[in-house]
Each structure stands twice: as C-alpha cells, then as structure tokens.
Amino acid sequence: MNHTSQRGVSLLGVMIVGAFAAFLLIVAFRTVPVFNEYTAIKRIVGILANDIDNGTSVIEARRNFDRRKSIDDVSSVSGADLVIDRSGGKTVVEVQYARTVPLVANVSLLFELSPSSEVR
C-alpha cells in the first residue's frame, strides 16, 4: 500500500493569509480616493497654468480652480492654497497639502502631496 502525505494549507494558514489580504484590501479601498483627488488636482493645475499663459489673471485662475474642484470632488485644497510662479517662460502652478487616512482604530496613513503643473 502506498501512503502519501497530504499537502496543502492548514486552516490557520488560510486564516492568516485571509487576514493579510483583508488588511491589504482595506488599505487599497481607503487610499484610492486620495490618489484620485491627487490626479484631479494635477490635471486642474495643468489647465490653469495654460490658462494663465494665455492671458487669464491669477485671481480668475484661483476662481476657476474653485469651480473645477467642486466638479471633480476635490476637498483638500482651495484656490487660495495655490502657489503660482510666473517668473520663468512658463507659468507653474503648484500646491502642497497633507491628507490623513484613518485605517483601523488609531492607525492612520499620512500622505504629503505636492501636485504641480511643471513637467518633471
């Protein structure tokens, strides 16, 4: 008679892998909105930099940001937070902000972001 041992994952192994996968899913679900907002802000400041280069005033650009941010559901920054540099040949619009994302209990993630219209 041929006796072969069973191979596979134990119940404890499945539970540990499942808990780890659940934690990763929680982190992913909580951080996706942060990156969606970042890309929306980056897109808006790029548009504003082009508008300023084409003759829009800085005050009007800030107002345009506030209008666009409500459409794109941006809540972390406002037009007053924008840093607009017109010293070079091209206008650079940028903003720095931090966003805290609560994970579980008193554990949070801190994102320090600085979207800019400058191509790096």
Score class of each variant (00 low, 15 high):
Ala40Pro: 06
Val27Tyr: 10
Ile59Leu: 08
Ala40Phe: 04
Pro33Ala: 00
Phe65Ala: 05
Leu48Lys: 08
Gly55Asp: 01
Thr39Met: 14
Arg62Glu: 01
Asn64Lys: 12
Arg67Thr: 15
Ala19His: 03
Ala22Glu: 14
Val32His: 13
Val14Gln: 15
Glu60Tyr: 03
Gly13Leu: 10
Phe29Ser: 06
Ile52His: 05
Leu48Arg: 09
Lys42Gln: 14
Ser70Leu: 11
Gly8Arg: 06
Ser70His: 09
Gly18Arg: 09
Asp66Glu: 02
Asp51Gly: 11
Leu25Trp: 09
Val14Pro: 10
Ala21Cys: 08
Phe65Gly: 08
Ile44Tyr: 02
Gly13Lys: 14
Ile47Asp: 05
Phe23Trp: 10
Ala22Gly: 14
Phe29Ile: 15
Gly8Leu: 00
Leu48Gln: 07
Leu11Trp: 05
Leu24Ala: 02
Phe35Leu: 10
Ile47Lys: 14
Ile71Met: 06
Phe35Val: 07
Ile26Asp: 00
Gly55Glu: 00
Asn36His: 10
Pro33Met: 01
Val27Gly: 00
Thr39Phe: 14
Lys69Trp: 00
Ile71Ala: 02
Ala21Ile: 07
Phe35Glu: 05
Val14Trp: 12
Phe35Ile: 09
Thr39Ile: 13
Ala21Glu: 06
Pro33Ile: 00
Val45Asn: 03
Asn64Arg: 08
Ala28Glu: 04
Glu37Leu: 06
Leu25Val: 12
Ala49Ser: 07
Pro33Phe: 02
Ile41Pro: 04
Ile71Asp: 03
Ala21Phe: 01
Phe23Val: 11
Arg68Val: 03
Gly18Trp: 03
Gly8Lys: 04
Ile71Thr: 07
Arg63Pro: 13
Arg43Thr: 12
Asp51Cys: 08
Ile44Gly: 08
Gly46Trp: 02
Val27Ala: 00
Phe23Cys: 10
Met15Ser: 09
Met15Trp: 10
Ala19Gly: 03
Asp51Pro: 12
Val32Ser: 14
Ala49Trp: 13
Ile44Met: 07
Ser10Ala: 10
Asn54Pro: 07
Glu37Lys: 12
Leu12Ala: 06
Ala19Arg: 08
Arg43Ala: 09
Glu37His: 08
Ala22His: 09
Ala61Trp: 00
Val9Trp: 10
Leu12Tyr: 13
Leu11Cys: 06
Tyr38Gln: 01
Phe65Pro: 12
Val45Glu: 01
Gly8Met: 01
Asp66Phe: 00
Ala61Met: 04
Thr31Gly: 09
Val27Gln: 07
Ile41Cys: 00
Arg67Asp: 15
Pro33His: 04
Val45Phe: 01
Glu37Gln: 06
Arg67Pro: 15
Gly46Phe: 01
Asn50Leu: 15
Asn64Val: 11
Ala22Asn: 11
Val9Phe: 10
Leu12Lys: 15
Ile41His: 04
Gly55Pro: 00
Val32Asp: 13
Ile47Met: 12
Leu48Thr: 07
Leu24Asp: 03
Asn54Cys: 08
Ile47Gly: 04
Ile16Glu: 10
Ala21Leu: 05
